[in-house]
């Protein structure tokens, strides 16, 4: 029998609202972090670095993608846990340990690291396509370098950043392995709840109702991205 009971449960139970909220918030946070990190990096790669350095940077960005996702997540566990590299380094310079292993902060760091290449590549592609002549024109008209970056390069590169954000946002939104491995108590994502409803509770209708949420979020996101010209940049 068709009814909206499962959707009602989604909306009414605070636990599910907070899980959806956490997932979306993390996806936004990771996307913003990656955009901020990727833009200067991609700018350097596309417009400053020599051919040789550019090749090296490309390799540095792409090589981690050849390693298993799990290996990279486990590497971060080793860095962030109580006796890990981070706390060891902090202690050796006389600082108190940072207890960020198995927290949402740890998830934020790991997600930002894992999806960073997916932001750098489209941003790089967009930046490389900005014609040198436009910058020369800006310089002729008296714009300093930073002014030119802000008013000429940034608007032209924006579709590339938005294209990259589609990856970082959707990949974070749909992930459920990093929360299991890196998250602590109170780190469940939408994906984890779907997984437990399919695998453990056998409550497939509820899992299906919950699966609609990321689909709807992505539909809205893609519409906005299209308006911003992301698909031309891909």
């Amino acid at each position: 029998m068709w009814n909206t009971e499962n959707f009602q449960r989604l909306i009414e139970e605070p636990a599910y609202r907070s899980i959806i909220g956490r997932t979306v918030f993390m996806a936004v946070l990771v996307t913003v972090t990656d955009a901020v990190l990727a833009f200067p990096f991609a700018y350097f790669m596309a417009r400053v670095a020599s051919r040789r350095v550019q090749t090296l940077l490309f390799a540095a960005v792409l090589l981690p993608l050849w390693a298993s996702y799990l290996a990279r997540v486990y590497a971060w566990i080793l860095i962030l846990n109580h006796n890990g590299l981070l706390n060891w380094s902090l202690q050796s310079i006389g600082l108190p340990p940072a207890e960020i292993g198995y927290t949402n902060v740890a998830m934020w760091i790991v997600f930002s690291y894992i999806w960073l290449p997916f932001m750098i590549i489209p941003t790089y592609a967009a930046l490389e396509r900005v014609p040198e002549s436009l910058l020369e024109a800006a310089a002729d008209l008296g714009a300093r370098r930073w002014r030119a970056v802000r008013d000429v390069v940034l608007p032209l590169a924006l579709p590339g950043v938005v294209a990259g954000s589609i990856f970082t946002f959707s990949l974070t939104l749909g992930d459920y392995i990093t929360p299991i491995l890196v998250g602590g108590a109170g780190s469940s994502f939408i994906g984890n709840v779907i997984y437990s409803n399919v695998g453990i509770a056998n409550n497939i209708p509820f899992a299906a109702a919950l699966a609609i949420v990321p689909v709807a979020i992505m539909a809205v996101y893609l519409l906005i991205a299209q308006r911003l010209g992301a698909f031309e940049a891909l």
């Binding site: 108590a185 780190s187 469940s188 709840v193 409803n197 453990i200 509770a201 409550n203």
Partner: peptide
């Protein structure tokens, strides 16, 4: 199972 989801947030 659903209570457990709520418990661990």
């Amino acid at each position: 199972v659903s209570a457990w989801t709520t418990i661990k947030g």
